[in-house]
Design a protein around this nucleic acid. Structure first.
Lengths: 263, 263
DNA sequence: TCGACGGTAAATGTCTGACACTTAGGAAGG
DNA sequence: CCTTCCTAAGTGTCAGACATTTACCGTCGA
């Protein structure tokens, strides 16, 4: 990140390399907010305030044109902003329009994962940080999962712990979800799932699986099975410890040279 | 990633105003992706692939119209999408244009916080979940902070632990950052900070401070001080335990009826 | 009576061309 | 050397038109 990269106002500036003796008031702020931003902010505020319930239909673009006194292009750019933040969805055709989108955890996780992927490409966020965060989160999640184990979630865990079969045989891929994600979900706490999943996603997608031998995967699967059974029996402490050990094992893989796909 | 590619099965479909007895296969997928999305996806892909480095300038809107063979409106809508995902920043004037944005953790935290705020308005994510997640994260963070305490971070902690003075007296508000955020930052692990801060933000902004008596805040400040000193002395276990106790104390506040601002 | 078919209209999607506004940098003037 | 003004590149905004999608509804035929 070049130090000259001028940062627009985020409001949460940390250590700012304060430009001493600013020549003339040299603000980088946008003097005027573009109209499309004002429109977007106003609509967003209405949505967040609950004035527009989820599923509700916004006025048509032409109507918004009249309401805000701006052109349709401007309205549309505002709508694109909201749509890309998943606050609205637009449909075409008769009875089409822009609708307030129902908040979707999966979508948020996707977005965060994507942003994380970008961040790990910078020196500010190291893979080691992700591993540490995971090591902090998932053992605790395993403990909670054990404390709250229900037949249904245990069943899901068993499915997830079953080794993913040969990728060339797609038959086993139905309904197969990542084990670690499943453990997070088994806590019944959506917040934990949302915190942990993006981390796991990034680690998984950037690991070059070629550096790992087949028998290593067998060990991994064995660990998953052990953890699952601890959770199934409600053995909280054991589940936590097993997960911690598992993650430490994995760390050995992640620490290998060339384990990370660069691009 | 965030392109929110035409939704693969998220499995989290909730109450869709299901048109009973779907006439013919009634998919909600967009048959054709609008041009602005294609342009946005292509540009995003180039940015993520690294073909455009951070800070690099994209072609001007007019040039992009030529390159993609679409009108400027379409190009602009695509740029709005990328801008609202913080992948690019746009400047006006000579030497203006769209520039690849440097990844900014603070921005990501902001976004996640905003999205969380929306999610807690739904039954899928309860405040209790946030509290639990926090209870899981911050004590561990306090431990790590203690293990790695450096003079500089300790100093920042002391500043943050100092009671925020009367809001009507803005003098004390300079440089005052939330204590819990500071603890997270003191771990030196950006990932932990990014996981914890949105949670704290949501809890803080939605707590109706009117239900809390002044002396309660004094207790809170005292707790902050205790934790800070544990961290300063490198007492990891004590710091962790103090933080846990502090959060459990806070829980009493959060559990009061009427503690949450509805919206 | 019921299903298939096709028309209609309300919206979004796209294009074109024009003008306004912003702003860094250079030229002119003191 | 400093200040002031001008310029030009680029984004921001507007207006109007046409294209495309698609739920709905009426018609027709079996």
């Amino acid at each position: 990140m070049s130090p000259s990269a001028d940062r627009p106002p985020t409001g949460t500036e940390l250590a700012s390399p304060v430009p001493r003796r600013a020549p003339t008031a040299r603000l980088k702020v946008q003097r005027v907010r573009p109209a499309y931003r004002q429109v977007a902010d106003e609509l967003r505020s209405q949505i967040m305030r609950g004035a527009l319930a989820a599923g509700a239909r916004l006025p048509s673009e032409s109507e918004l044109t009249g309401m805000f006194g701006v052109s349709r292009s401007t309205v549309r750019e505002a709508l694109r902003v909201l749509a890309s933040q998943h606050l609205i969805e637009t449909r075409r055709g008769v009875q089409g329009g822009s609708f307030v989108a129902a908040p979707d955890p999966a979508r948020l996780v996707e977005d965060v994962g994507g942003a994380l992927g970008v961040l790990v490409a910078t020196p500010s966020l190291a893979m080691a940080d992700l591993l540490e965060a995971r090591l902090l989160l998932e053992p605790a999640a395993a403990r909670l999962a054990a404390q709250r184990a229900e037949p249904e979630t245990v069943e899901a865990l068993r499915r997830a712990a079953a080794p993913a079969r040969d990728p060339r045989d797609p038959s086993g891929f139905v309904e197969h979800m990542d084990f670690h994600t499943t453990v997070l979900m088994a806590t019944g706490n959506l917040m934990l799932t949302m915190m942990g999943q993006p981390v796991g996603d990034v680690l998984r997608t950037r690991l070059d699986r070629a550096v790992v031998e087949a028998e290593r995967w067998a060990e991994v699967d064995a660990c998953h099975g052990t953890i699952t059974e601890h959770i199934a029996r409600g053995e909280a402490a054991e589940a936590e410890e097993a997960m911690r050990g598992h993650l430490l094992d994995l760390r050995e893989i992640y620490d290998r040279p060339g384990a990370w796909k660069t691009g």
